[in-house]
Amino acid sequence: MSAHEPARERVRGIAMSGLKADLYRVLKYAALIAWAIFVVAPFLWALSTSFKSDPGVVGGATYIPFLEYEPTVDGWTALFRDTSSGGISMQGPYLSSLVVSLISTSIALFLGTLAAYGLSRFTFRAGPLGNNDITFFFISQRIMPPAVLAIPYFLLLRFTGLLDTHLGLILVYVAMLLPIVVWVMVDFFNTVPIELDEAALIDGCNPIQAFYRIILPNCAPGMVVATLLCIIFSWSDFFFALTLTFAKVQLLPPTIVILNSNKVPWWSLSASALVSVLPLVIIAFVLERYLARGTLAGVIRE
């Protein structure tokens, strides 16, 4: 009897700790669910609103279609209708935004990655200035708030005749994105030991091959982070799109915001907001596993 006592004691101990673990898990999921609601609810509300018409909006808050209001797809079809027939004609700005953000992201990634590799691997000297100063120079461009930059950029683009063009906006975005890419990538390249470059050079690579066959693959998570940051910035930028383009070129964020002007079409506004978030959601899902692997598992820690 007494011989069984300790065993029973132990079993109870396990049960106790199991209970504790359960409680912990419950609390954990409760917190996660609360956060998820906080994050997702606005989207659901927007989704619900996008199917409403006037009565569904002005008569106080309503949420559930068919029960609380009569759903209509007018908010969605308006996105593609001509302005003359009361629509927003979103395709144009949508395409413009896609083109501008994809091109500027690609250019910034290409140039920024090369610049970062150079800064990570070679020593540059210009009088008293060295690599760290150059890196800081890149980052320092992001110290100034966009409001300060807007007027100089405006004048610059007007002077070069690039105001209200895709190219002008792309150039401005590249200037804004480069520091991010350089900053992120210098850090990643610095974690890759230089012996890898040297081994590749001796193995038969020229410096460019060593870069893209050996070093770049080992910095893939960094590329993913940089890409994500670039696309988020260039896709959702409102300020420069508003100040540097107006007639010929129209980007998505200003187009959506302008809907707010006189009589607000809440349904179309909601629909367009959802549509404009869509690319980022897709990218987030695609890149998620790389991100998790990069930041949590360590890149090449051995």
Partner: peptide
């Protein structure tokens, strides 16, 4: 060349 840090491609 054989390196101290082996320098294998990860």
């Amino acid at each position: 060349m054989v390196f101290q840090s082996h320098a294998l491609y990860p």
